[in-house]
Every structure is written in C-alpha cells, then in structure tokens.
Design a protein around this nucleic acid. Structure first.
Length: 428
DNA sequence: TCTGGGGTCCTAGGACCC
DNA sequence: TCTGGGGTCCTAGGACCC
C-alpha cells in the first residue's frame, strides 16, 4: 500500500452546472456554454454529449442540430463561474489542510495523513456536501499520484456503478488493471492527440499499456515529461501538490473580435484593454515584465481573404508593472507591425522576461519618487477595480465605442455578483 | 452581421555577438 | 582566409490543458 493518497475533485460540466444552478428548468435538457465570442462549445451537458457534440466544436456548425434537439446555448459568464468556483473551493478546503486549486473547476486534496478513513466514504461526503451547500454535482477520484487520481476521477465520471467516487488505492490490483486496460491512453493526463498517435504505433493504446511501458524507451522517444507520467501511473508520485501557484513565466491576453477589424485605431483600443488586463495579472503575482510581445493576425479560416500575421518583441528599458509603460511599449510595437488593408481577427500581448517585484533591478537612473507614485497609482486602480468591478477606472486609450469587442449574445445574469441581476426567488 | 476560444510552456532554427 | 564553439535573443510553431 502506498503512503500517498491524493484526491481529485472535479465539477461535472462545470459551466453548464453553474447556469442550471439559477435556472433549474435547464435540468435534464441539452445545454451548452460557448467560448468567448460565442465561437466554440466549451461545456456540454450529458444530454449534449450523448448527441455526439465534441468539445471545442464551432457553434455555427451546430445550429441545425441545436434546432432539431432544442439545445440551449449560453455565452460564457466567467464572472458567475469564478464566483461559484470560489465557493466550491472554500468548501473543499475544509476537507484537507492541503489543497491545490488546479483550475476553475477542479482541485487536488492531499489525504495522505487520513489513516482511519475509508476514502470512498470520504469522497461521498465531499460529494454530498458540495451538492447540498453549493448545489453542484462533483466527482472524486483517489490515487497514489496526481495522474492516478485524475484517472480514478475519469472512472468515477464514466462508470455509474462507482456513484461518483473511485478510490484506486483500495481496489484489488486486478480490478484496477482491468479498468486501466479499458481506458484509452488519450485519457491519461499529459497525453494529447499527437502523443497518443505516436504511442499507438508502438502498440501502446490503453492506460495499462502506458503503465507497463519501459521508462527508458518512453524517455528516449518522448522525453522526461512522459517518463514521469509512466512513474506516476505506477504509483510513484513525481508531481508535488502545489498549494501556492508558482508564478507564471509568461502572461498572455488575447481575444478574437466580434467582427473583423480594419483600422489601427480599433486595434490600439483593443490592445490597450488587453495590456491593461495582462498588467493586472502581472501585479497580482507580484512580478515585473522585462519585455512584451505583441501580435496581430487575420482569420486563418477565411482562406479567400488576404492573410497577414505578425508578432514583435518589444524590450522594456527596465522591468516594470506599470500599466502605462506597458501600454505605450505595446502601442509602439503595434504601430510597427500594423499593415492597412487586412481584415484583422485577433490581437494579443504576451508579457515575458518576468521577474519577482522583490528583484527589481537598481540602476543609476532610478527615480524613487516616480516609482513610489507609480506603485501608489497602480495599487489604487487595482483596489478600486476589485471593489467596483473591473474597468471602473481605465485608460482613455481603450476608447468608448469598442466596435472590436467580442460577441456575447446569450449571456445569463450575474446572479451572485451584481445587485441588479441577483437571483430572485418566487413563493408558490 | 455572418459566425472557428484562451492560455502556458517548450523547442527548433536563424541571426547576431563574443 | 577559413574554421569553430557557445550564448542570447527573436520568431514561429508544436503540444497540451481546460
């Protein structure tokens, strides 16, 4: 019996479940949530999966199917989902002192010290609590490593006989291996389409095949990352629980436009908005950017239109977290790569060369007064926007008309974060 | 109007410099 | 004149995840 026990708790079709929370009539109906710009399907209810709709399927291609089966679609309402996510994570934190919030809808919990508890009972308690307190369905997988916990969660989701909880640490080896033999290797965390294809040429098609693969050969063909996955499948925990998110090494913000954009002015406005958002993320993780990269591109899908795409790295004189400096550097870069006459579909910015604020380099030309003013301004702006809603205070460069903004035609209300849209309860 | 997401990390190759 | 290694930066693209 291994010493480690890690649980992965994952919300079922999270975005769809959030919408159902406030619109119970959506239960048992086919529901999808669309990506930004109402472009692709990013969350599907069980009923929609049963219709064969794939993750990331373009929505416009599904219109006929949607009409035929009455699929109900929502634009993504990230404000709502983030708020519900925080509530779920807070409750889950009470089930273990060690929690890693891995994404908006899933977290790892370290259960290693829990000697006198039946993990599957504990998993059921987690499920019942989240259902009762928040109203969302979740599944729980438990394994000796993160990768095994992920796979156990997959079993908990796919096989009704497990009733939403699967504990690999307490299954007879033969049973577990039978399960792994029935799981496509593509379902293993870290194995994507390309790797799966390569693996299948080597005769490795199931999760069990990968577990039994020779680590040396895997390393030679795919590198250390997949070698680690093999070790993890064998119960050797290589990936530590990260209770504190390590700072990102790059921060990107980009969006597709609701409709094509032609003018430099509109691109500049969008760029200002995206750099502003990137700078907020930068300050939140207490980093400075040493350089930034701007890019623009036309739509690769419009093959009959003239194509253009270009990126450019703009070094910063000294690493900074000041929105104004980042915006002006980005605008200088954008000016250089912009070419008139193209139908632009997207612009974006990537902040790179990130270092911790605590390591701000000192130079002969430092201006402590200006630095103090910048810090005061940025933290004031951040706290106002945190309190009053993002973009309450913003640079004029974002413009007013925003003809570049994304399409969101089917967005639900901000039930929990905006007083005038709050959920209303009717008495019978 | 006219529809195709957003984000992180890594690597390869070329340019340039020492 | 030709040859060489190594490092860094930029750019583009791959792979993966949600």
């Amino acid at each position: 019996m291994s010493s480690q026990a890690i649980a992965l708790v994952d919300c079922n079709n999270f975005y769809v479940s959030c919408e159902r929370l406030f619109q119970p009539w959506l239960e048992n109906r086919p529901v999808v949530v669309l990506s930004n710009n109402d472009g692709c399907v990013v969350a599907r209810s069980q009923e929609v999966r049963a219709l064969g709709v794939k993750m990331a399927a373009p929505w416009f291609q599904l219109k006929a199917l949607a009409r035929q089966h009455g699929i109900i679609a929502f634009s993504s309402n990230y404000t709502l989902y983030a708020d519900i996510s925080n509530r779920v994570m807070n409750v889950l934190a009470s089930f273990s002192p060690q929690q890693e919030i891995y994404s908006i809808d899933e977290c790892f919990l370290d259960l290693s010290g829990f000697k006198h508890i039946q993990f599957s009972d504990y998993g059921q308690r987690i499920r019942a609590t989240i259902k009762q307190w928040i109203g969302l369905p979740v599944c729980v997988g438990i394994g000796a490593s993160k990768t095994l916990a992920k796979l156990a969660n997959h079993v908990a989701k796919k096989r009704p006989e497990y009733v939403g909880v699967c504990d690999f640490t307490n299954l007879p080896v033969a049973v577990r291996e039978t399960l792994l033999a029935q799981i496509d290797v593509r379902e293993v965390w870290g194995v994507g389409a390309r790797t799966a294809e390569h693996l299948s040429r080597m005769g490795i098609v199931s999760a069990l095949d990968l577990q039994r693969a020779a680590p040396k050969i895997i390393r030679a063909q795919f590198g250390v990352v997949l070698e680690r996955t093999v070790a993890e499948l064998n119960g050797e925990a290589c990936l530590a629980l990260e209770m504190i998110t390590p700072p990102r090494q790059q921060i990107m913000v980009s969006r597709s436009f609701g409709s094509a954009v032609y003018t430099l002015e509109s691109l500049q406005q969008a760029m200002t908005a995206y750099v502003t958002r990137a700078a907020e993320k930068l300050r939140r993780q207490a980093s400075l950017a040493g350089a930034l990269q701007v890019f623009i591109r036309t739509s690769p899908f419009k093959t009959d239109a003239a194509q253009y795409q270009r990126g450019l790295v703009v070094p910063l004189a000294s690493p900074t977290e000041d929105t104004r400096q980042l915006v002006s550097a980005a605008q200088a870069g954008l000016q250089q790569i912009y070419r008139p006459g193209f139908a632009y579909q997207k612009v974006g910015v990537v902040l790179t060369g990130l270092i911790p604020m605590a390591q701000r380099p000192r130079t002969l030309f430092d201006d402590p007064v200006a630095q103090a003013r910048s810090n005061a301004l940025m933290s004031t702006v951040d706290s106002i926007n945190a309190k009053m809603g993002s973009h309450s205070v913003r640079l004029l460069g974002e413009g007013w008309d925003k003809n570049w903004r994304m399409r969101r035609e089917r967005v639900s209300q901000h039930y929990t974060t905006q007083l005038d849209e709050i959920a209303i309860v009717h008495a019978q």
